[in-house]
């Protein structure tokens, strides 16, 4: 397949940002996270990077109106996904749930009723993310929701570098010359949703849509993407955003 990047993306200046936030943050847990994560240098080969796959279920797509209901984490490296170290939380959104989203997320009222507020698990979540490169599929959910939730509870913002497996797929299937050619001849765009992306690498389907299983699915997808399109010594700055 043809794969020509259309333009060089400007590398975000993550190390500077993280170092600055580490100094400024008032919340000690946030400060620790920024300090630890600033150790991920742009040159670090992906094969050596400690990573953690993260997935969230939310009540909707707008972080201003909707809330997080569950978070799944699976720590991994390029060589191994360590399911034994998985973390999973159900949290109670501040606003009552709408019935619709319950059906979608398969988490029930009673489950959520007994769940803690995100604030209660936040320290454990931050500790699990600290010093790791976070991997998500479609960062425009995880990043703004986490940021908004932390802002609301600790009064500070939380942003850090993420590898977005969906944008890695998009680079190949949406932005390449081949993709533009396909669009030009009127072919539908290739799906870059998690399930369809996995299929292209021969990864098996998972039936459930659950934050932990989707985090696992994302970790597997990144391993496959690196094996197919990159090298273990590819610097992480070429992959994060």
């Amino acid at each position: 397949m043809l794969s020509l990047p259309m333009f060089k993306r400007p590398a975000p200046v993550w190390p500077d940002y993280l170092a600055r936030r580490a100094g400024e943050a008032r919340d000690p847990r946030l400060a620790e996270l920024f300090a630890a994560t600033s150790q991920l240098t742009p040159e670090m080969p992906i094969g050596e990077a400690p990573m953690v796959a993260m997935d969230m279920e939310t009540t909707g797509l707008d972080e201003r109106r909707h809330a997080i209901v569950s978070i799944g984490l699976v720590p991994f490296s390029l060589g191994r996904i360590r399911l034994a170290e998985r973390r999973y939380w159900v949290v109670r959104p501040p606003r009552p749930l709408v019935r619709q989203s319950v059906a979608f997320h398969r988490i029930t009222d009673s489950e959520i009723e007994h769940a803690p507020d995100l604030d209660e698990i936040l320290d454990a979540l931050l500790a699990a993310l600290a010093g790791r490169l976070v991997v998500v599929h479609y960062r425009h959910i995880e990043r703004p929701f986490l940021d908004a939730a932390v802002q609301a509870r600790r009064g500070e913002s939380l942003r850090f570098p993420m590898i977005d497996t969906m944008s890695l797929e998009a680079r190949i299937h949406r932005q390449s010359l081949w993709a533009r050619f396909r669009r030009w001849i009127g072919r539908p765009p290739v799906s870059i949703r998690l399930h369809n992306s996995r299929e292209r690498y021969g990864l098996p389907p998972y039936q459930s849509h659950h934050a932990l299983i989707d985090a696992l699915a994302t970790a597997e997808l990144l391993q496959a993407q690196i094996a197919a399109r990159h090298q273990p010594d590819t610097p992480i700055s070429q992959l994060w955003s």
Partner: peptide, 13 residues
């Protein structure tokens, strides 16, 4: 099930 680890191997590796 709770203890497994996972890795992907490209064809030929």
């Amino acid at each position: 099930a709770g203890r497994i680890e996972v890795a992907y191997f490209k064809a030929g590796s």
